[in-house]
Design a protein around this nucleic acid. Structure first.
Lengths: 152, 152
DNA sequence: AGTGAAAAGGCTTTAAC
DNA sequence: GTTAAAGCCTTTTCACT
């Protein structure tokens, strides 16, 4: 699917306010509401727009810290690699699990309430998954940037 | 601000569909629309709900790859550390910049169109920022999990 | 493909309980 | 917190450019 500048402008408008009305969007992109509606429906159908959501403040939910865990596995068979990913997927605090190239196999991002919670999570959940050869944790001290995809 | 189970249920409903109507939300959480409305306004005002957005498919925009770059800086003065973050913030392809504890100073996530684009970005943008002592890149091979904050 | 208007309906918001 | 009611605004369609 090809996206023109109007489509990109519509995506930008919806990224900024996912509840914007067609009139708002039309005004923002310089089109009337009808073509905006058509374009949005097309992008939804094509999967360009994957969904509408809210951005929730993690701290308001008590998650004060983010930890990045790097993991190497004992075996690198496809089976082991994906099985580990499946096990991670069942841990709610694991927000993201990336299979990566380089020194480590996985980068994992976890949300924790505090250092105690982190210790508990590691001991009770992460280290219970078999097959970990080595792991290394880094606490996120500060998030200097958090952006959305550039729509240019 | 304290959140009860209804607030959490409302957040869950809005995470799933950020454009859900009050009637939908009420039905989902077992409340009429009025208290849902009050609670949402309260959570918006308190910053629990930071905003409404859409989830856009990166591949639809031509971003086929994600790269995680680990960086150590030459100086660890507060000034240098934050200045580097500010420079990163100006690069649109840098989606996330985390100041972290451990062997490296920064973990950076960048969206690239392909390996060529990655090389260009590194050369023209990232390596032009002064103060980098060492860096290491990992390509994301597969995203095994991508979740939202647990609302329990 | 975009405009503008019109219809229908649902939505938010207020008020009473 | 519930229910009900008012009215606005929204989406959606259609005729036309």
């Amino acid at each position: 699917m090809t996206l023109d500048k109007f489509d990109l402008a519509i995506l930008a408008a919806l990224q900024k306010d996912g509840r914007a009305s067609l009139a708002d969007i039309g005004a923002a992109v310089g089109l009337s509401s009808t073509p905006c509606w058509n374009r949005i429906k097309r992008m939804e159908a094509a999967g360009v727009i994957r969904g509408y959501t809210i951005d929730v403040d993690p701290e308001a939910l008590g998650y004060q810290d983010t930890v990045i865990v790097h993991v190497t596995l004992e075996s690198h068979s496809e089976e082991t690699l994906y099985e580990f990913g499946r096990a991670l997927a069942e841990i709610p605090e694991v927000l993201e699990a990336l299979l990566v190239s380089g020194d480590y196999d996985y980068y994992i991002r976890i949300a924790v309430r505090d250092t105690r919670d982190y210790e508990r999570l590691l001991r009770e959940k992460l280290y219970r998954i078999p097959g970990i050869r080595h792991s290394k944790s880094s606490f996120v001290l500060r998030r200097l940037k958090q952006a959305r995809l550039p729509l240019a």
